[in-house]
Design a protein around this nucleic acid. Structure first.
Length: 559
RNA sequence: UGGCCUAUAGUAUAAUGGUAGUACGACAGAUUUUGGUUCUGUUUGUCUAGGUUCGAAUCCUGGUAGGCCAACCA
């Protein structure tokens, strides 16, 4: 291994440091992590970061990663979400060791509750939710003890059993841990362990009418699975004290929780609640709308799994607040797509060109690189003829300095074809440009150019006679501001009204007709595109994944 | 009248008491049959005040700023 490589490996994130120390100390022979989503929504880019972290760790170190659904709240959870989550993780390229559900442990968790009751560490509380809240105190004032706090273990056992048997209505009673109502940590003020919910659960059906709270399920689930390093986001830091307390009282495997800061992306939102609102209120077409930061949205947009993994690795992991620039995500997908995407020529806004010295009725097939980055380079054939379309904004009648495209009297190369010169601008009665009359330089044919002419610009084009039509959907950021959640008022007030621009008819070279589902292309000088699921045999629809970097647009902005 | 977490270029992240580095972005240039790619260069940073130390981004104390905690949500 090279010195450089070792240098790279020295730079560990704080979790890898902990793991390496644990491994070196012989604390564990292998590590076990888990990805623990609640099946109540679709995964987004923030989850991708957690997935890459958890699965990445057990690819790097001996051990494995479980997929565990934290399904302790039957009213919000659905099998549809379970399936989409599994699809997304697989698509990202990861394989879990065991597929588990917190609901697998409902029996075990019930027994844990009994143990706590017997130890005098849990009690049934008849207080209403309002009363419990009132007795909870505030962050700056201690809470007060519930009047039901000192029930006997026998009475608690009886009441808890009857809660399970369904004798009491929803909300009438809870099981609470007996910890410390004066704790400076609000989580430790006799947290609720179980609540009554006569609700159908997506997996256990009607077997249970009491359900454990997340706090009574999560830590023990980790423990049951022998999770060595339980990774979660910073908002769970105060919960760790409770997990550790429960593990100690229950005398079970000591999983240890480590927290990292959730990743935020600018110009979007990553909160299931907000994403759900965007879907329900139809600001987007669904969870997989290509503008959504969901994994399914990114997939439909044309992002590759590799680019998302690369992004997650590049942003790293730490504990401080962050707002990551979406330009890094875009960089990652461009870098990947540049290597793998086939090139095609597509004209979005056509301007007709007639090559007056090219014989009428003549046509020829020209070779063009499928991808110049590929090794070896493959070629495709592109038909060429007398009448072509070029992009309207590739021509200017009165060009500014440094405009390397077509203008009266100016020469330019047509990609993989010939150099042409603009001789005449044809206009209609209103003075609108309808066509350009040009001459082509026969000796300048791509690959066998003996003309000796040097041009600064190269344009994409398409033969009118051979052109096929397609629809393209151009996406921009969903929000106008970097951090919509942090603005005055409702985050939805900051939705970008121009986040979708549809061009219903563009003109493409015929090779595009061979597109299959999920094909990714670079439309020359336009950006990266992929075939959308809305496509049909006679209506191709392409989503723009990301634009190309555009130095000319930048140049124009300066002026 | 609380507890906990955090603070390094515009953004993200290294440096683990010993030269503040990397990536993205921005800017400039070279190359280019994509104004893409590639390559080169430039710019910008340790929140603050003390303390410990030969030496502090790093350790300690105070301050400041931001975040989290008062769902029968997760």
């Amino acid at each position: 291994m090279s010195e450089h490589k070792q240098e790279e490996e020295k730079s560990l994130n704080f979790i890898e440091e902990i793991i390496e120390a644990d491994l070196a100390a012989g604390k564990y022979q292998q590590i076990v992590t888990r990805f623990p989503p609640e099946p109540n929504g679709y995964l987004h880019i923030g989850h991708a970061s957690s997935i890459v972290l958890n699965f990445g760790l057990t690819q790097k170190y001996p051990g494995y990663t479980n997929l565990r659904f934290d399904d302790t709240n039957p009213v919000t959870e659905e099998t549809e979400y379970v399936d989409s989550i599994k699809d997304d993780i697989r698509w990202l390229g990861f394989t879990w060791k065991n597929e588990l559900f917190a609901s697998d442990y409902f029996g075990k968790l019930y027994e844990f509750a009994i143990i706590l009751i017997k130890k005098g560490l849990a009690y049934v509380d008849d207080s209403t939710s309002e009363e419990i809240a009132a007795m909870k105190g505030t962050p700056t004032h201690p809470g007060s003890n519930s009047p039901f706090r000192d029930r006997s273990a026998e009475e608690n056992l009886d009441l808890f059993r009857r809660m399970k048997e369904g004798e009491f209505p929803d909300g009438s009673r809870t099981l609470r841990a007996k910890v410390d109502m004066a704790s400076p940590n609000m989580i430790m003020r006799d947290p609720i362990l179980y609540r009554i919910k006569h609700a159908h659960h997506h997996r256990t059906g009607n077997e249970w009418c009491i359900y454990p709270m997340y706090d009574f399920a999560h830590g023990q689930s980790d423990s049951i699975e022998n999770i060595t390093h339980s990774l979660c986001t910073m908002e769970f830091v105060p919960h760790r004290e409770l997990y550790d307390w429960l593990i100690k009282q229950l005398e079970i495997f000591p999983s240890h929780q480590y927290e990292f800061a959730r990743r935020n992306l600018n110009y979007t939102v990553t909160s299931k609640r907000k994403l759900l609102q965007l879907v329900n209120e139809q600001h987007v077409v669904g969870w997989d709308d290509p503008r959504m930061p969901t994994i399914s949205g990114l997939r439909r947009r044309g992002y590759t799994p590799a680019s998302i993994r690369d992004f997650c690795e590049r942003i790293g992991i730490a504990k401080r607040e962050n707002l990551i620039d979406v330009s890094l995500l875009e960089f990652c997908v461009r870098e990947d797509l540049n290597k793998v995407a086939s090139r095609r020529m597509v004209v979005f806004d056509p301007l007709k060109i007639v090559l007056t010295n090219y014989p009428e009725g003549q046509e020829e097939m020209l070779k063009s690189e499928d991808n110049p980055e590929a090794d070896p380079v493959q070629y495709r054939e592109v038909p060429f003829s007398r009448e072509l379309y070029i992009e309207a904004d590739d021509f200017m009648e009165n060009p500014p300095k440094k405009f390397f495209r077509l203008a009266p009297g100016q020469m330019v190369r047509l990609k993989s074809a010939y150099i042409i010169r603009c001789d005449e601008v044809v206009k209609d009665a209103d003075g609108k440009i309808t066509a350009l009359h040009c001459t082509y330089i026969p000796e300048s044919k791509s690959g066998s150019d003996t003309s000796g002419i040097n041009v600064k610009g190269t344009l994409h084009w398409v033969s009118i006679k051979h052109a096929v039509s397609a629809e393209v959907r151009l996406y921009d950021r969903l929000f106008r501001v970097e951090d919509p959640s942090n603005e005055e008022g409702d985050f939805k007030d900051y939705i970008n009204p121009d986040s979708l621009h549809v061009i219903s008819r563009v003109y493409a070279e015929p090779a595009l007709l061979q597109s299959g589902s999920g094909d990714r292309y670079q439309f020359l000088r336009k950006g990266y595109f992929c075939l959308d699921k809305d496509s049909s045999a006679n209506n191709l629809v392409f989503n723009r994944t990301v634009t190309l970097k555009d130095a000319w647009a930048k140049e124009q902005k300066k002026n």
